[in-house]
């Protein structure tokens, strides 16, 4: 049995993921403490999204282990991860396109019933469930869009919808995959506020983000990935001044030779 000293909500141990001949992740170990906001940064193709796919069960690791709340969950399917309390969003949004915003969130809220065959066949539109979903709609400021078809919404709203859908799982961890990219400044500020609010309710959050000011604001700890390997981990300030990180992003210092 794994003993849990400091409260680690997610612990990734020596995870390797190989696609054909490509090592997308090479013995990556990361641990996320309870109720912190953890950042993952790195150049394109560093393996950040692959890491999320492994934590959320979309991909199985080639080797290595993932612990959630001290329990080994390596190789579990996504819906089991969701039932346990891992919610995620996608870099390229994936709302349930032909369903309304309300139904999108309700579909995830149903995680409480799907494992039970009798409950699966009971009616979903009940006051108590609707009330809960309305609270999520209000919290994520999606209330005005609740009857809109998900695929008719602007990107910023779809991003929020994905967060709302993940929140309906009542998650312990929320994985945000570049939720801030492509948004306007005001949308970024709004979303930042939302992320802090969610975090204040005790939900641990892992963000993949390219926007460094956002990372600096949000995260207590940041890990840098490059070519599938973890370069460094530390506070955002430490990380951005680390020479290895600078090299990964902009290359090595070279002196002209005479």
């Amino acid at each position: 049995m794994e003993v849990n000293k400091s409260k680690k909500i997610i612990e990734i141990q020596d995870v390797v993921k190989i696609f054909g001949g490509l090592k997308a992740l090479d013995r990556v170990s990361i641990s996320v403490e309870e109720s912190e906001i953890f950042g993952i940064v790195g150049p394109n193709g560093a393996g950040k999204t692959t890491l999320f796919n492994i934590i959320s069960g979309v991909l199985k690791p080639t080797s290595g282990k993932i612990f959630f709340n001290g329990k080994d969950v390596s190789g579990q399917p996504p819906y089991k991860m969701a039932q346990m309390g891992i919610g995620r969003t996608f870099q390229v949004v994936r709302p349930f396109s032909f369903m309304s915003v309300f139904e999108n969130i309700m579909a995830a809220y149903g995680v409480r019933f799907y494992h039970n065959i009798t409950k699966s066949f009971s009616k979903w539109k009940k006051e108590e469930y609707v009330k809960d979903v309305m609270l999520i709609l209000l919290k994520t400021e999606l209330f005005e869009y609740k009857e809109r078809r998900a695929d008719t919404l602007p990107l910023g709203v779809q991003r929020k919808l994905e967060i709302a859908r993940a929140l309906a799982l009542n998650p312990k961890v929320l994985l945000l995959d570049e939720s801030f990219s492509g948004l306007s400044f005001s949308e970024i500020d709004e979303l930042k506020k939302l992320v802090f609010n969610i975090n204040n309710e005790g939900v641990s959050i892992v963000v993949i983000e390219h926007n460094m000011p956002v990372v600096m604001d949000l995260c207590k700890t940041v890990a840098v990935l490059n070519y599938g390997k973890k370069l460094v981990q530390g506070s955002p300030k430490e990380v951005v001044s680390n020479p290895d990180v600078i090299e990964a992003y902009i290359g090595k210092k070279q002196y002209a030779q005479s």
Binding site: P78, M81, A82, R94, S97, M99, G110, V111, Y114, K123
Partner: peptide, 26 residues
């Protein structure tokens, strides 16, 4: 069936299988 959780889950699977999976739907 339409109005049951199973119906809602089926619609979600129809819309996006991966997104439904990470939303707790098998």
């Amino acid at each position: 069936f339409r109005r049951s959780w199973a119906g809602l889950a089926s619609f979600a699977v129809k819309a996006d299988e991966i997104a439904s999976n990470v939303s707790g739907i098998d």
